[in-house]
């Protein structure tokens, strides 16, 4: 069976990796592999004081769920959690979490990788840099490398 119902959340508060993995796997004996990816805010060579994450409320959740359902169908995942934060996030803090569960490891690795590649290029979130010198920096530009990373799944 691969009709996993994904857990999707968009929230300002932090998330707990261990707690989310436990919530996904509690009471189950069908899971053989869990891959957890978390994305953190870098300090960009000690120049950054925070990233400000803006999102399109409603569409962000809808788009993450759409991508999650693609990942579940394609890799026969039996569990998937995706959480994305918004608001001001300091270096060292969490931004995004993806947990993919499957009977075997390759599907779990691929499912998490696919989820992140699509999330980065089609979930409506934008990052603005706040710099340590007190100035407000630029909006982070979309990267060709992220588009290429997604294209590998086509």
């Amino acid at each position: 069976m691969s009709d996993a119902n994904p857990t999707i959340r968009v929230q300002s508060q932090d998330f707990d990796l261990d707690g989310e993995v436990r919530a996904l796997s509690a009471g189950r004996q069908d899971i053989g592999a869990v891959v957890t990816f978390s994305g953190l805010c870098r300090d960009e060579g000690a120049t950054l004081s925070a990233l400000e994450l803006e999102h399109y409320p409603g569409m962000a959740e809808t788009e993450m769920r759409r991508i999650a359902e693609l990942a579940i169908a394609r890799f026969h995942l039996i569990g998937l959690t995706a959480i994305h934060r918004f608001g001001k996030i300091a270096p060292g803090e969490n931004i995004v979490l993806v947990i993919a569960a499957a009977p075997h490891r390759q599907a779990a690795f691929d499912g998490a990788n696919f989820m992140m590649d699509y999330l980065k290029t089609s979930a409506p979130f934008w990052k603005k840099e706040h710099l340590r010198d007190g100035s407000s920096g630029a909006w982070v530009a979309a990267k060709d490398a992220d588009d290429k990373a997604r294209e590998k799944w086509l």
């Binding site: 931004i95 980065k120 409506p124 990052k127 979309a142």
Partner: peptide, 29 residues
Amino acid sequence: VAINQEHVEHDEPIAGATEIGLFPPMTGG
């Protein structure tokens, strides 16, 4: 462009749209 919170191409008709979003390429994750 997103029409009613779904991504669309620029040649998409907007007839029936209740909400249209305009924004830069996404940079989440």
